[in-house]
Design a protein around this nucleic acid. Structure first.
Lengths: 259, 259
DNA sequence: CGCCGTCGTCTCGCATCCGAGACAATTGTG
DNA sequence: CACAATTGTCTCGGATGCGAGACGACGGCG
């Protein structure tokens, strides 16, 4: 049993409030969390005093407060994903001799947060900050494959959602996308051949948080001509190790990338 | 002295981390917060175990974690601004017999979160979810007037930032905008006459958080022909009471709207 | 209108947690 | 390489925080 139970209880209260769309009465917070009523009132007083909880007096309920939002904003400003991933991506590139990149999902786009170039390899188009349609990239497909089907449908409500590249390729409908994602899950990695850049392929694996949701993806790039099955298998295994390492650092007790 | 000091200390640690762009060593957290080293390690262990803190082992530093971001997202999902403001806005409309709306700032836009229509008053164009350029609206000007000058400059870096309405009106440069904002601060309220809708004027006051930053604005609409000085003064006073009420509910120890 | 249930605050005694300080491991420096 | 500084973990005893339960206020209901 760790120390500082009041700290853990305070987090319990915040997380309980965050799981509900509506504010909650104090008594139900106490009941749901199995905490004494007076203890919950003490915690709410502290959290309210600090702005983490809003007290809706007329409704006699409590909800999250502005300070919770500010913490979330501060987290984003620290850019932890790229920070945590940098060393692991450097090692991956050193081991594989291939270019690697690290990206996250934003709506239907992937955003590239990191790229590491191996000596002698061609320049990547995926500069940091660049956005590309998720369904046309290995990284995007890796992350989409880790989302619930309902969320994928919400992202791609109609055929107009499927932006095309001038050279063609990539799914044109939700049914096609689902089929690709099912194969991605079966293979344990996503693959893209020549859709982003002719003659170059990428393989990618997702980085999952402890709830199993995709935080990011790790991808390696190789010449399509070099992409034999054994070679791809080896790269995927190494990318997966890097992804698991990053996942562990970001989320204690993280669910590992899909095996 | 309130109870649950460990809860308060945990929040201190999180807020300390959120004030820094870079992760921090545990010893400097303890020193800066005046807490015992072993207590800080206990708290970091709990916060890390729950995902609120990321431990950068190689750097031997600690930063905010994914769970901080999730709290912030959950706060947004609960839509607390509109929830808190609804009753106060209803009362304001009942007292004044005028249409009222409640909006927040998003970049250079205002977004309308609430509108309350008074009986016999014309329909508003400011439907919930509508965005309008902040510098052309009373609500936007009220909130901009509460921002630091550097932040206003960052929002409006050049003349192209000043979107025009087809009927003209509104500032066209940063110097013009600053002049209007200075007058808004002097008056204690913002005023817009006919820029959004011909023959209709609005007066607005900002809702401030406890750090003095604008969270939202409360506005009342009236016919330009009715806008005598005494009448406007009365509406402004009532809008201010509503804004202060909302500010108090959102932020304990909130700084009141500017007097 | 009276009664009941709930909310929010408060008291106080005891069980538990906090924090001083020891220790091993690691890193930095001359 | 040796020494100093720092990190991170651990122990344990005394001080303090937690929580049972009382209480007043308020709202709902018959």
């Amino acid at each position: 049993m760790s120390n500082a139970p009041a700290a853990a209880n305070a987090l319990d209260v915040l997380e309980h409030l965050s799981r509900h769309a509506e504010p909650l009465p104090a008594a139900s917070i106490a009941r749901d969390l199995g905490l004494p009523r007076s203890s919950v009132y003490h915690l709410l007083k502290v959290l309210h005093g600090r702005g983490y909880v809003t007290h809706y007096v007329e409704e006699r309920r409590f909800g999250l407060g502005q300070a919770a939002y500010e913490l979330g904003s501060a987290y984003q400003r620290q850019a932890p994903l790229a920070r945590v991933a940098r060393a692991a991506m450097r090692r991956l590139v050193d081991q594989c001799g291939r270019n690697a990149h690290f990206a996250t999902l934003d709506g239907r786009d992937v955003i590239y947060l990191l790229e590491e170039r191996a000596p002698g390899q061609p320049m990547l188009v995926t500069d940091v900050g660049v956005r590309l349609p998720a369904h046309l990239t290995a990284s995007g497909l890796a992350m989409l494959s880790a989302l619930p089907a309902t969320q994928v449908r919400a992202l791609y409500p109609d055929r107009a959602s499927f932006v095309q590249r001038s050279g063609g390729g990539g799914p044109r409908s939700l049914a096609e996308l689902r089929s690709i994602l099912a194969r991605t899950r079966a293979d344990g990695h996503a693959r893209e051949e020549g859709t982003v850049t002719p003659d170059l392929s990428s393989v990618a694996v997702p980085v999952l948080d402890r709830g199993g949701r995709p935080l990011a993806a790790v991808a390696l790039t190789l010449r399509t001509a070099d992409a034999s099955s054994e070679h791809v298998g080896d790269l995927v295994a190494r990318a997966r190790v890097a992804a698991e390492d990053v996942g562990r650092r970001l989320s204690p007790s993280a669910v590992m990338t899909r095996r």
